[in-house]
Design a protein around this nucleic acid. Sequence first.
DNA 1: CTTATGCGGAGGAAAATCTTCCGGTTAGGG
DNA 2: CCCTAACCGGAAGATTTTCCTCCGCATAAG
Lengths: 214, 214
Amino acid sequence: MEKGLRADARRNRDLIVAAAQELFLEQGVDVPLEEVARRAGVGVGTLYRRFPDRDALLRAVGEQSLRRLVDLAETAWQEEPDAWHALCRFLRGSVALRLGVLPAKLQPHLHQRMRAGADLHELRQRVIVAVLRMIERAQADGVLRADIGPGDIALLMTLNVYTPPGMHNEQAMGRVVEIMLDGLRADVESPLPGAPLGEDDLRRYTAVRLPPTE
Amino acid sequence: MEKGLRADARRNRDLIVAAAQELFLEQGVDVPLEEVARRAGVGVGTLYRRFPDRDALLRAVGEQSLRRLVDLAETAWQEEPDAWHALCRFLRGSVALRLGVLPAKLQPHLHQRMRAGADLHELRQRVIVAVLRMIERAQADGVLRADIGPGDIALLMTLNVYTPPGMHNEQAMGRVVEIMLDGLRADVESPLPGAPLGEDDLRRYTAVRLPPTE
DNA sequence: CTTATGCGGAGGAAAATCTTCCGGTTAGGG
DNA sequence: CCCTAACCGGAAGATTTTCCTCCGCATAAG
């Protein structure tokens, strides 16, 4: 993506997107762009040259996240021997990459941009489809507990992404995912309260709207 | 606490603290105080009169949270028939109240205030002691998996508190806690990666320091 | 009924953030 | 190796957000 840039420009662009992803997550989408520049190790000028406004940056981060997530999900599905292991790999990966089903704090903004923007919708759709497949299949195999819906998975993923900054710790989060996975196994089966969170919940969650700021 | 106020003043004070707790959690401790006032349904003047500066408000929220948490933990310990059920009740309750082991986003600030301030340290200590007791006992009973430490519990609690605003949903979070609890049961026992997060981790987590802003 | 106590929010001061612009630096083709 | 188009950093002025005081009006409580 984004070609015809000089090598240093390209590198800086990537640094900026990476820094932005971190900071959007840690501090919300309102972080001062100067802080993004600082974390990326570039000047503000560089940032503004590449991303005319906050939205452009937001879109870039969103697109990158989605692409990674699609790749993670589809690779897991293809390469793992069964649906349960695919699901495990997907969850573990999403935590390692700090990606929710969709990067949650970006949702409200991405959502607006979607109609206008790129093929974001399609990417999102692919992730959702992959997750649905994994769940359905894993339940059919009798490994994933039956009273779980796609929305539940989405919620778990999102929680893992919202780790407070000081706690973001590869090791510790790895343990949390495993605990969650164990809690998802079919052999546990103490009934969950309420109904499974379904596909509609998943969609709602991945398009969460911030409280009316105005 | 805080007496000799006229009835309406008292009421407003409580409204302010409640609003502040929500907003600190949702938007961080830097929310405009005007927004706190708005959510509480009072004028800024009222807020500033009662809490001269942000710190005063922070301290009030922290103290209230801690008190509730202490009460939750100690009540659970006393009233439940065994340690496992006490732990369940504690976790469920902390989610319902939206309280981490300590309200995480408040930590860095509370931590500074602690030496000066009230008996916050003692309250914190009581929570920690209660949690340690529950864990130790539940493991001795063979109900809680053995490769779990206090730090793990603290982390799980914190995750539940950091729900993004749009997802804060009583029902859904209830399901998440149950999944977590199932994952904590001893009969699951697929080994977790790394070592249990111990008491020191717990303390570190409950005193998390924000990244150097300056 | 009186009055001490409390309330709301307008508004000026202060701080944070945005955005542009340009002199200096560097990648990379010739 | 050299030249130049492309890129970089960050100072600085404009703009927006946030702070916090102050005072005329409202009301709880004796």
